[in-house]
Design a protein around this nucleic acid. Structure first.
Lengths: 208, 208
DNA sequence: CCCCTTGGCTAATGGGCGTAGCTTTCTGGC
DNA sequence: GCCAGAAAGCTACGCCCATTAGCCAAGGGG
């Protein structure tokens, strides 16, 4: 009959541990039963701290998105232009590879209407703003900026998604391929600028 | 006690219907109970035709990957170079947007070791081969070819994944953004060629 | 010191997968 | 035409999970 000393935050922390322990599918396999086991508590007891499994998932997603934003932000601070863009991509991938379960949590699109997802929408928007901020340094017209943001997100997210999903054979060359992808993105974004007046020392070719 | 006239194929067909009915999450929400309901049959009866839910999912994935390969193939037949690459990307996205549930089924990576996933591995490899075939027309060295294939897959897959997940606000500009992405990919792949000797009439800029 | 909020618990419901074993339907051989 | 036996349903059951309801103990504020 001793108390376990749980709290809403503690439960979420344990949920993140469960997600981390489950690898790429850790988020999909997140279960209240597992969290309860890790807490040394009966499953229904968790409802004293969390509303539902869906709520818990949302909290985990919120943490993951926040971490990803923080990683991206701190990787790009003090850099600009192609340098910042490359660092952003690398940080994004590093986070995803280092925390596959949490990155999977990140992929949950918030319901645009659900009030419960408001915080999630904000967090997602904030993470996109990091990309926007980096791309502003390229001096694109507004219409192209949004296209560029989408292209960057698509390329990086697609790459790490495929990599995590085992979509690439030959493990050893993946770093190289990612570098090539980043080169391609940097050159592509630079090419969207009005004329060819990059305001940072953007190089187009030369990978590796 | 009349017979429902099921068969393994019929069950898989119904499963695909269930997936289609579920939108983006249709594959994740696929359940034997739903398939049984649609078949007008009790859930355990399905085991006369299918080994398990996991088996059924695999079959659905197999169909989806096959369809995607077919769509990509038929879009690129008779084309080459940048033209083929653009058509490939467009067909990929069209399939994904037209069949969100099936495209989601596509994203599950086959276990590299499981014998049960052998057919799935083959199907996945076949779909990658379509991309490889298209990119061969760019005359890249082997080492760059694999990088290019990965970049193309990452960009296109990432884009449609984000789009399907609601990651893009402002629905009206998405087509334009995809065109820009394709331009970027085409130019990026062309830039990987040894010198700048594209062997088809590759254009680099000029979107819309 | 007592009360009452709080955080545990057990019991129970409902839904999902999967197994066992029964019954009915169809089909192939005679 | 009949009759096995395989095939295709069914119900009953066990297990796991989420969630609700209602009970009980721990412990802090008056």
């Amino acid at each position: 009959m001793p108390r376990a000393g749980l709290s809403p935050d503690a439960v979420v922390r344990l949920a993140v541990e469960v997600v981390d322990a489950g690898g790429t599918t850790g988020f999909a396999d997140l279960t209240l039963a597992k969290v309860a086991a890790r807490a040394g508590v009966a499953a229904p007891s968790l409802y004293k701290h969390v509303g539902s499994l869906a709520d818990l998932r949302r909290e985990v997603t919120l943490i993951a998105v926040g971490e990803l934003t923080a990683a991206a932000t701190s990787a790009t601070v003090g850099r600009s232009g192609a340098d910042a863009l490359r660092a952003l991509g690398a940080a994004w991938r590093t986070y995803a590879l280092g925390h596959p379960g949490r990155y999977a949590a990140t992929q949950i699109g918030p319901d645009p209407d659900a009030p419960a997802d408001a915080a999630l929408r904000d967090a997602a928007a904030e993470s996109v703003q990091v990309v926007v901020a980096v791309l502003r340094g390229f001096g694109l017209p507004d219409a192209r900026l949004i296209d560029a943001v989408r292209a960057v997100r698509a390329g990086v997210h697609g790459f790490v998604t495929l990599e995590l999903g085992g979509g690439f054979r030959m493990r050893e060359d993946v770093d190289q391929s990612f570098t090539v992808l980043l080169d391609m993105i940097v050159a592509g974004v630079a090419a969207l600028a009005p004329s060819d007046t990059p305001q940072s020392d953007t190089t187009t070719g030369s990978h590796s």
